[in-house]
Design a binder for these strands. Structure first.
Length: 296
DNA sequence: AGTTCAGCATCGGACAAGGG
DNA sequence: CCCTTGTCCGATGCTGAACT
């Protein structure tokens, strides 16, 4: 998909930016920018799009995104219903690799941080104990100024580089050569799919949205997102099904229909191909891990 | 819940036309 | 000349029914 190139505001008194966002929902579109970005979710739930991967996010979610890696945080539908009790908030740290000078990152002491930033080109989801540790440091950095703030960022990057408690998010790196003109059409399709993925959606409907014939639409979509439309749609539906499997006490059949599938056999096959296990096994695996961690 | 299979729908490669 | 879009058509994916 084509992402919008976002211009990150420059700060006059800092070599990098720390920003706190708080609103009814996250409204930044699918975009990318040259700055690295550490995103810590304080409030709200939804789906996180990084490169070619779609996952669920919730409070505590912590992700390090590489330079020019397209991303989008989309809240669940209830956040768009003007419910004043629901808020979306996050802390975002944005920096470039030369924020301490052109060659600083090449110094031997920075070797491990350099390596972790390279891995971040595919997006890193920070997990486990490292997540708690980094989250605490991210909350602290908002109150720091000047040199203390800069040292805190280095501490955060150092902590991530010294750990292996993270997983790569995307299979593909940044979209080199993305066409930065005409971002509206793909975003229109994304918005439509996010609002209707629990209902039947055909290629015809989607292609009519941007006034294209179906085959042109398929090629257009593949060229920009590197996924087929069907794969993209099913990725969102399976992601939603995973959420329901964990959070709702519904049968697999009910979850299948509530996720936008209308065929259990197809749902099962799609689920297995993406998660390498059946929906039932996924649920059992989750609760086994939960009871294990609760027992510790 | 999960598997298999036949029939239909969609995908995507090859090629061509049109516009800037 | 390059890029976008349309058409054709074989390959592949998806669906729904029947079954374990």
């Amino acid at each position: 998909m084509k992402a919008i190139l976002q211009k990150v505001p420059e700060s006059v008194d800092s070599s990098f930016a720390v920003q706190e966002f708080r609103s009814a929902y996250f409204d930044t579109p699918w975009h990318f920018h040259p700055e690295y970005e550490l995103v810590y979710i304080l409030e709200s739930e939804g789906k996180r799009f990084v490169g070619d991967k779609i996952s669920n996010f919730k409070p505590g979610d912590l992700v390090l995104l590489g330079s020019n890696l397209p991303h989008w945080y989309r809240n669940d539908a209830i956040y768009y219903n003007d419910d004043p009790s629901l808020k979306a908030s996050s802390i975002v740290i944005q920096f470039t690799t030369d924020f301490l000078g052109d060659t600083f990152l090449l110094s031997p002491e920075m070797f491990e941080i350099h390596q972790i930033l390279q891995k971040a080109q595919k997006g890193l989801e920070i997990k486990g104990g490292l997540s708690n540790k980094v989250a605490k440091m991210v909350r602290e950095i908002t109150d720091l100024k000047g040199m203390d703030r800069l040292l805190q960022l280095l501490r955060i990057l150092n902590a991530i580089s010294k750990s292996d408690e993270y997983r790569l998010l995307s299979n593909k790196g940044p979209s080199i050569g993305v066409n930065v003109n005409d971002p509206k059409r793909i975003n229109k399709i994304y918005e439509y799919v996010m609002n209707h993925f629990t209902e039947p959606i055909t290629i015809n409907e989607a292609s009519e949205l941007i006034h294209m014939c179906p085959s042109t639409f398929c090629r257009y979509f593949k060229k920009r997102t590197r996924n087929t439309f069907t794969f993209f749609l099913n990725e969102i539906r399976i992601g939603h099904a995973c959420k329901l499997l964990i959070e709702e006490d519904l049968s697999i059949t009910e979850i299948c229909y509530k996720s936008g599938f209308n065929n259990i056999s197809y749902f099962n096959r799609q689920f297995k191909s993406r998660k390498n296990m059946t929906p039932q096994a996924f649920r059992q695996e989750y609760y086994k891990k939960s009871s294990y961690s609760a027992a510790l």
